[in-house]
Write a protein that binds this DNA or RNA. Structure first.
Length: 548
RNA sequence: CGGGACGUAGCGCAGCUUGGUAGCGCGCAGCGUUCGGGACGCUGAGGUCGCGGGUUCAAAUCCCGCCGUCCCGACCA
């Protein structure tokens, strides 16, 4: 981000809102061209949907509320509510229903490359999380689930090609569907230490998943014993956290049973998990779907008659649903809350002291967990989510009442998929992955210029003429070249060439004119070479084709 | 939304404690020297001190309000 500003690719206008300067715009346009080519090749058709959209369809799908303040909302002069599009399921679905009303028209895949607006509560790191960002969004419409899955696979292939062509080091991970909803979905995460998203991957197979979505299979079975101790209450003054109780009683966190209370549409849900584990609230939400689940705050806990920090499962009546994470399986003689402030119990046992209604995977995955696919051990890494694909099914077509006429004369809801690529994020991710202390090192496919020609002695006509000649030769051969004809001294221009990061530099100076040689440098490797002035353009192009 | 900090020239900052004629570096313009890895000298231009109100003979400085920006947090019983 710092380099993108220093190298004059972008300038900030407001929090999370940026102007694209000539260099940044060129890079963005090149990414756009790659995306457009691959989408077209995959059979998608480009459209342009409005940015300013009426509120009604958003209210129909419920997202006017669930998106909440994340959506920029405006009111027009007639008092009509509008929004700035953060994504376009609500716009494209009714449009498709209008235009493609027959099963004979399907499948259809429409995409656009357009600016998106999300009023992020905390914009960060420049282009990484902006409030205005360029996104390619595609929407597939199929007759049935098989069709949707095959449209999805076509998009996944196109996405791999796009991310490869942009020179990103990335992983395809199973992800959490978040606000958009739906089932199967994948993120394309560019590996980067500054990334906001953590993911886990298996070194011995191709499993990779977002930390929020990663499955946790049978995390260490716990310690089972047939020898059930009596249920005994002990005072634990002030010890309301697992850590504090563990310390107070001198028992490891693995022997604690953590009980968390959720509200699911008015009903109390108790979630049990082993003390050394964290609950993944997204998983709880999925387990209780479609009832919306929310972690109770302290007031709600108190209102329902429990003591925050000292909750145990012993007193849960029939009106409470008790979910248990697999980490609780096989455990016995638990230490858990006594349902009284400043007290816990020891020797709590399933069956005798409490019941469990359902077993679920509710645990937050972490490094060191076993791979769900085999015998590997998961490793954690972080990155930037460049793209996200979803199999939506009929979720939006149902909410919006969008149907087509099937062969048998019935009205059916479209099986949808949606596919997003953050183009501005790809700029940020590529800059993050390809730079050194001196500046940026763009992969040639998305570099603002492929070759920079630097005459170092602007007071020498022979130098300037040679540089211009080589520059013209490059242009004539279809190369995107930049001539640095500023009157600045050599050091400034060479450093700037490094900073903006074109893959190949040609340096022409007084000494070179005398010896008939041009100096070339490959930015990524730093490798320098020489070529006769007459062949400098050709040599640069050969260097370029060898560059990453 | 909660906590913290900041807002003075295009950029980065000092000055504010203890009120009294607006300062530094970089950049910019002119002249000269220098010039193949961020040169140097001299001269010069450039500021409603975020906005509004208050205290005072006098406010960048003290007080109140607002706006903007950045950082941390916003799920762990």
């Amino acid at each position: 981000h710092v380099l993108l500003i220093r190298a004059a690719f972008i300038r900030k206008n407001a929090a999370g809102i940026y102007s694209m300067l000539p260099l940044g715009w060129r890079t963005l346009r090149k990414i756009e061209a790659i995306v457009r080519q691959e989408m077209d090749a995959a059979g998608a058709q480009e459209v342009r949907l409005p940015i300013v959209v009426p509120a009604e369809p958003w209210k129909q799908t419920g997202r006017w509320e669930t998106y909440g303040d994340l959506m920029f909302k405006v009111t027009d002069r007639h008092g009509r509510e509008m929004g700035l599009g953060p994504t376009h399921e609500e716009v494209v679905t009714p449009l498709v229903a209008q235009e493609f009303g027959s099963y004979r028209d399907l499948p259809v895949n429409l995409y656009q490359i357009e600016w998106k607006y999300r009023d992020e509560f905390r914009p960060r790191f420049g282009l990484l999380r902006g409030r205005e960002f360029l996104m390619k969004d595609a929407y597939s419409f199929d007759r049935d689930e098989d069709g949707m899955r095959s449209s999805y696979d076509v998009m996944m292939d196109a996405y791999r090609t796009i991310h490869d062509r942009c020179g990103l080091d990335y992983r395809v991970v199973e992800a959490d569907p978040g606000q958009i909803g739906g089932g199967v979905n994948h993120e394309f995460i560019a590996v980067a230490d500054v990334g906001e998203d953590w993911f886990l991957y298996c070194p011995s197979c191709d499993y990779a998943a977002d930390v929020e979505a990663a499955a946790v299979v049978a995390p260490d079975a716990g310690r089972s014993t047939a020898d059930h101790e009596p249920l005994t209450e002990v005072d634990t003054p002030g010890a309301s956290t697992i850590e504090a109780v563990s310390q107070f009683l001198g028992r490891p966190a693995e022997e604690m049973l953590k009980t968390m209370l959720f509200d699911a549409g008015g009903r109390t849900v108790a979630v049990l998990i082993r003390g050394d584990r964290e609950v993944n609230v997204e998983k709880v939400g999925r387990a209780l779907w479609p009832v919306p689940a929310e972690l109770m705050d302290e007031q709600t806990v108190a209102k329902r008659g429990y003591a925050m920090g000292f909750v145990g499962p012993q007193v849960m009546g029939e009106d409470v649903t008790v979910l248990a994470d697999h980490s609780v399986r096989g455990g016995s003689n638990w230490v858990t809350g006594a349902n009284r402030v400043d007290a816990h119990v020891t020797g709590a046992n399933e069956g005798r002291d409490f019941r469990i209604d359902r077993w679920e995977d509710l645990s937050q995955a972490r490094e060191g967990d076993p791979c769900p696919n085999g015998d590997g051990t998961l490793v954690q890494s972080r990155g930037i989510v460049a793209s996200h694909t979803y199999q939506l099914g009929p979720r939006y077509s149902k909410a919006l009442g969008s149907t087509f006429l099937d062969e048998d004369g019935s009205q059916r809801h479209y099986e949808m998929g949606c596919y997003g690529i953050g183009l501005t994020r790809i700029v940020a991710a590529a800059a993050e992955q390809h730079h050194d202390d001196a500046g940026l090192m763009w992969p040639k496919a998305i570099a603002p210029y492929e070759v920079v020609v630097v005459p170092t002695n602007m007071d020498q006509p022979a130098v300037v003429e040679a540089a211009e000649r080589i520059y013209e030769q490059l242009l004539a051969r279809g190369c995107e070249a930049l001539l640095d004809d500023r009157d600045d001294r050599a050091g400034v221009k060479l450093n700037d060439a490094d900073l903006i990061g074109a893959p190949v530099q040609i340096v022409i100076g007084k000494r070179g004119i005398e010896s008939g040689q041009a100096d070339l440098k490959a930015r990524a490797t730093g490798e320098r070479s020489q070529a006769p002035l007459g062949d400098a353009a050709g040599a640069a192009l050969r260097l370029l084709s060898a560059a990453p």
